[in-house]
Design a protein around this nucleic acid. Structure first.
Lengths: 140, 140
DNA sequence: CTAAACCTTTCCATTAGTGTGAAGGTCAAG
DNA sequence: CTTGACCTTCACACTAATGGAAAGGTTTAG
């Protein structure tokens, strides 16, 4: 399929699909006239890219991580994805970085959650609160 | 303490501390000469900001979420942090966004993990792999 | 054949986060 | 009082991700 169709099917602007190619996370081939041509799997791939970007990863991280996620889906044929030790190391680093992110997010998720719950229990209405901020100046 | 000292204690460049003030997530007061003055709690605050930025949050999200995380630490006095219904709503939205991020990251964390494990088991040495990529062109 | 709808590349713009340098004010030490 | 180490603001620049316009090629419909 051509870029417009992929854009429509994924909800991602053609401009971005070209950008993803430029940064090396999407690899269409070209038909004779120079048009980009995408296969069906590109749809999933683009959706996964969006998901990861929205989760805060950079395209660089995604570039290291995506080939392996592709392979993970097709467990049909063991691992068909080529890796050398360097790739594997990069992968391990990305994994650590992701784990750290999860940690931070979970910690803060819990804090926010309990904070919200406290307020839902106490300040049922709009309890025109009080008390000064820790630094100076009113927040906002 | 002045900006240089805070920078040293947190490992965050003065330039950034000023930027964090500009975007409203750090609120020093000013002494007579115009110098920014920070209290002890600013150290923790800055470290938390860094943590959240590195986890992929934007300063905008942090701005909504930080006051509540401050309050969470000082559970001494119930909730001393002023909130109106609008703040609370923003907080709930941020919470959802964070939860979604965690989900995505966890899913991919698992995939990467099992991929790495598969390779550690199979390709003990450097098994000069094979097989074509799903789209076109060799990866990298 | 022509017009519309797509595609191409190139370039410029914007936002967020960050780095850096200029021009100048403040302050403590000598 | 001068020097050096800090501080201030202002401004320009870079990367990443994104938006968009310009100028031109291709394809399809009429």
């Amino acid at each position: 399929m051509k870029i417009g169709e992929l854009a429509e099917k994924t909800g991602v602007a053609p401009r971005l699909l070209r950008y993803y190619e430029e940064v090396g996370i999407l690899h269409p081939f070209r038909s004779g006239n120079g048009y980009r041509t995408y296969g069906e799997p590109a749809i999933d791939r683009v959706l996964q890219i969006r998901e990861l970007l929205e989760a805060g990863l950079t395209t660089e991280m995604i570039r290291e991580v995506l080939p392996c996620l592709d392979a993970a889906k097709e467990e049909t044929e063991a691992q068909a994805c080529p890796v050398d030790d360097k790739d594997l190391d990069g992968l391990r680093r990305q994994l650590i970085s992701i784990e750290r992110r999860i940690d931070v997010l979970q910690r803060n998720q819990r804090a926010i959650k309990s904070y919200i719950r406290a307020w839902e229990k106490a300040g049922v209405a709009s309890p025109a609160a009080s008390a000064g901020p820790q630094e100076a100046e009113v927040r906002r």
